[in-house]
């Protein structure tokens, strides 16, 4: 069990590093899908099968498809890869990398501080999650529904194209109206 966890964690970390260093957006996206899949294996090992399934269905399924659609719509191909290659110089990433390492060292220190012995991890089945979700957290579910509604409306509103008016008389008329 532990061996599987360490292998999966290594896969997750390697693929995440690949996500933030790739030049081609599609490659980064595919590495992110691998990272999400291995993270869902970790959820399964932690005794959270419901969260693991949702991770695959929603993250690796729905959200990544959205990203792929946008990348295909914008036609980000080789030009973007070349551009990224120019941007991603050691001078650019060395500073943030040092800051991140310091932050990780702090987190490592906080996590490794001595505390009482931890019991083994317990499985939380989806029934308990559902009961907890629809009794004490019901207001949270409703708020999440409102948030999703706001997301849909906002995306539909922001994403619509305004037709540019090229004819100068039409443009003047438009300005006079407003």
């Amino acid at each position: 069990m532990e061996l599987i966890f360490y292998i999966t964690a290594a896969i997750t970390l390697v693929s995440t590093v690949m996500v933030i260093t790739r030049h081609n957006p599609v490659h980064a996206l595919l590495y992110l899908v691998i990272s999400l899949l291995s993270l869902s294996v970790i959820f399964f090992l932690l005794g959270a099968p419901f969260a693991a399934l949702l991770e695959i269905i929603i993250y690796a399924g729905a959200i990544m498809v959205l990203f792929i659609f946008v990348i295909m719509l914008l036609n980000l191909g080789k030009e973007t890869a070349i551009q990224e290659k120019e941007w991603l110089k050691p001078k650019v990433w060395i500073g943030p990398a040092i800051l991140s390492v310091i932050l990780f060292a702090e987190l490592f220190y906080l996590i490794s501080m001595p505390h009482e012995a931890s019991p083994v991890l317990k499985t939380v089945d989806s029934k308990a999650v559902a009961i907890s979700l629809f009794r004490p957290y019901l207001i949270g579910v409703e708020l999440a529904a409102m948030l999703l509604m706001a997301g849909v409306v906002g995306a539909a509103h922001i994403g619509q194209h305004k037709k540019l008016v090229f004819h100068r008389f039409l443009k003047e008329e438009e300005e006079e109206k407003t």
Partner: peptide, 16 residues
């Protein structure tokens, strides 16, 4: 923590 730090580094490093 490692994943979070990698995410922060990605946000800072990338220009796209």
């Amino acid at each position: 923590a490692l994943l979070f730090v990698l995410g922060i580094a990605g946000v800072i490093i990338r220009k796209n």
